[in-house]
Write a protein that binds this DNA or RNA. Structure first.
Lengths: 339, 339
DNA sequence: GTGAAAGCGCTAACAG
DNA sequence: CTGTTAGCGCTTTCAC
């Protein structure tokens, strides 16, 4: 492995000059520049990044903290983050926290060891004080998460608005008995979603009924179970916002097995716009998150922070969801059955 | 940010001793050891990883080259790779090649710049010569890919066997007119899968019919289109191996819309065991890949290579798939319809 | 057991 | 425009 010294010798110049060529500095004569470039090519020289990191005090690496990579939403987010980072010549280290406080903290320590220039958190298990302490070592930005009072950039979707729009849509379809599911998270975003949902109902004069509030649902199985609960009600809801596509799909699949007609007997709305939503019969009405925009903003913001070396600042970047209205909430005129 | 020097001063000792404590070297008196540890705690000292990398000539980072992160199979693979790497205290840099030869090569260069200790490729667009050249700088292992004649470790699934088992299962269900779909890849693995499929058919005395060979299918839309083709055939197949769950799901969804009964009119087998396979009605028979085992082996092998500093070696690690038999290929006695 | 000193490969003052 | 020099933070001979 050749070093800058080797290149310098071969070109008959000093390390400095080679370094200048390497970093596109001005004040190098074209003649010597060419000499250096030839020597580099000849030796197959590539600068050593550890040495550069040590000298420059930056690595060109950003850590992304993710609870679980294979979750469709998160894998899409990583994909977009990677694409945006790649444009700016940053590498991404992927850290799976598995919702563990401890793991999360140990990954934040990558800032202290200077293994990364910044951290993007897509969820946050620890208290603000933990984040705050790490801010002495580098920038942290939240993408897809909110933390009250934190003076760091936060990039997120307007959940109040998502909840509001879903409810509005269902109300417009003539529903008034509408169920709501949460995944159990008590995050600010989740609370906002519920508030938005309730607000629309209240406006329409159909205050939210706690009997229709189902909690801790996130999987397909959960969706199946929630159907069983609904089936058991004497006066069941006519529509449901499941808060997740897996739940919606599980619920629909189970409901169909029991002869229910979706959306006639029960209108269903999911969340995330996963692939299944277009595969199920009926296709599922769902909320589309602005993944690409959030990812791009997150990279943009963290790069700026790294550059400015100013890690604390109150910044909110809010994006809007879109509602994809599909068959699971739209009652169509029936086709005449051929017998 | 405090350095080893600061710790040494505070403890009234030399950098060497501090370093020894840091690296658990023997020959440090317990007394001084404690002194050092106190000083480290007091200063909140954490070793700088760039300096360590430079000095030790290793980074503790592995690059994973992936065509597209959000593909369910790949996101599962990344998840498992991350978990296995984390156990060995390695970080993973995720590089999305997007099937680009050029990007792939530039990521392989991370080995030259010493930004990573090794590379795991989950697909390979470049020729062997490109790989070979980079082997001068660090280990490369293939996980989920085969390259003829390459003298590097390759971890993969026995595709011949997968294809064989699928065909066998369909034959046992009484089918003889069985269609086969490929995603267009001409990789060794894909060829093996097809050979396995054909072998089973040949054994049963039902040689493969090229009329039933559909190519370049990978998406839901492709699945829908292939159904249209099948519907147009005068003498259509009674079973089909779609080579992918998305294709299978798209096909089934379209077939149902046209009143076909799956599996009675057409038995369908997917590939990958994605979530949808259990959500569709009927649930889809599919091939389960040994993702976890392959990921663990890949990490194990690359760590060993890094350790031994011997990058070239002919190694094959083959794993087996499992067939998950579900409703899309099993004709059940019909339930009596209540009218 | 412990410390002094050299050096991993690179960049940025500072001179000239 | 170019070179000399110091040093980023760490580990490791080699002495003592």
């Amino acid at each position: 492995m050749s070093t800058i010294e080797d290149v310098a010798k071969l070109a008959g110049l000093s390390r400095t000059t080679v370094s200048r060529v390497l970093n596109d500095h001005p004040y190098v004569s074209d003649e010597k520049k060419k000499l250096v470039q030839q020597a580099m090519k000849h030796l197959g020289y590539v600068p050593n990044s550890a040495a550069r990191s040590l000298r420059n005090q930056k690595t060109g690496i950003i850590a992304v903290l993710i609870p679980k990579i294979s979750t469709p939403f998160f894998s899409q987010l990583i994909e977009r983050l990677e694409m945006a980072a790649s444009v700016k010549n940053y590498q991404l280290i992927i850290c799976q926290t598995q919702f563990s406080k401890h793991k999360e903290r140990s990954y934040l320590d990558l800032l202290k060891t200077k293994q990364v220039d910044g951290v993007i958190m897509t969820s946050c298990e620890n208290d603000w004080s933990v984040i705050d302490e790490h801010l002495n070592y580098g920038p942290i930005v939240l993408c897809n998460e909110i933390l009250e009072d934190g003076n760091i950039p936060m990039i997120y979707m307007d959940q109040f608005c998502s909840g509001y729009e879903v409810a509005k849509h269902l109300l417009e379809q003539g529903h008034s008995r509408i169920a709501y599911c949460s995944n159990g998270s008590q995050s600010i975003g989740m609370k906002a979603r519920k508030r938005g949902f309730e607000a629309a109902l209240a406006e329409a004069g159909h205050p939210f009924d706690d009997e229709f509030y189902f909690q801790h649902l996130s999987s397909i199985t959960d969706g199946k179970q929630v159907f069983q609960q609904i089936k058991g009600l004497t006066n069941p809801p006519t529509a449901i916002f499941t808060g997740g596509d897996s739940v919606a799909a599980g619920l629909i699949s189970e409901a169909k097995k029991h002869g229910w007609n979706i959306p006639v007997d029960l209108a269903v709305v999911g969340f995330d716009n996963m692939e299944i939503t277009e595969l199920m019969d009926p296709m599922i009405t769902t909320v589309i998150q602005p993944v690409e925009e959030m990812a791009q903003k997150a990279i943009e913001v963290i790069c700026e922070k790294i550059h400015k070396k100013q890690y604390r600042s109150y910044e909110r970047h809010e994006f809007s969801s879109k509602l994809a209205i599909r068959e699971s909430t739209m009652i169509k005129p029936r086709l005449v059955a051929t017998s």
